[in-house]
Amino acid sequence: MHPEDELSAYLDGELHQEERDRIDAHLENCPSCRSLLEEFIELKGTFSSVMFSISEPDGFENRVIEAVAREYRVRNLGKLWLFVPMLAVMLFGLVAVACWPLAIQLLKGLLVIGKALLYTTSLAVADMPLFSGVAGVLTLILLIASILSLRRLLRSTAR
């Protein structure tokens, strides 16, 4: 019986010593297996040398490095859609702390206006429920669309 399926591993040095010895003994007396092994050796050599002679196109590494850098920029700028509003809130907070007495007055004023607005809104909602509902939904849609377009704008700028 010819150990043909072992010849490939024999050639690659992947057999245990006992198995190697067995194949060596067989090869001594079997011209057909010797011939197959020689073909494998030739095939492996030719295949490797052909593949090793293939090199990447000129300027390939620069194109890859540029593509990676572009991807990196996109990733980083893409995060700005969250960062910009957060920065605005933080700046507002800082200004508020810096001008604390004025901010108190402002907040009091805002509270009064807020209460008045709330009262007016509650009356308006009670009087015109359909109109208020539609207005509320439209406001929400407008808000979401603004956030999404800001995000897209920042991403396209990155590219």
């Binding site: 593949m51 090793f52 293939i54 090199s55 990447e56 590494e61 890859v64 490095i65 990676v68």
Partner: peptide, 15 residues
Amino acid sequence: AFSELVIRNKGYVFR
């Protein structure tokens, strides 16, 4: 550093 990795590995990845 990644550019260095590209230079070192470009041949065998392309092949």
